[in-house]
């Protein structure tokens, strides 16, 4: 691995770490990347109705486009 590619990987890892969110849910700490597929699925599972789901989907796509 060249030093430039190692540097790029480090920068990418730092960027990924910086956009992580830490929240408390059901008495547990949850680390998530709001733009990750896992977080998207978890957020949608939390939705109670279509309106809420639609709003979450809009937020998710906004995050995905900006990440």
């Amino acid at each position: 691995m060249t030093s430039s590619s190692a540097g790029a990987q480090t920068a990418q890892a730092a960027k990924a770490q910086s956009r992580l969110a830490l929240s408390k849910s059901k008495d547990r700490w949850v680390v998530s990347d709001p733009a990750s597929p896992q977080a998207v699925c978890a957020a949608l599972e939390e939705a109670d109705n279509w309106q809420q789901g639609k709003k979450l989907l809009q937020e998710i796509f906004t995050r995905l486009l900006s990440s």
Partner: peptide, 13 residues
């Protein structure tokens, strides 16, 4: 004890 720590994405806390 601290509340349990879980993750949905790879990270270090």
């Amino acid at each position: 004890a601290v509340s349990p720590i879980t993750a949905l994405t790879p990270a270090t806390v």
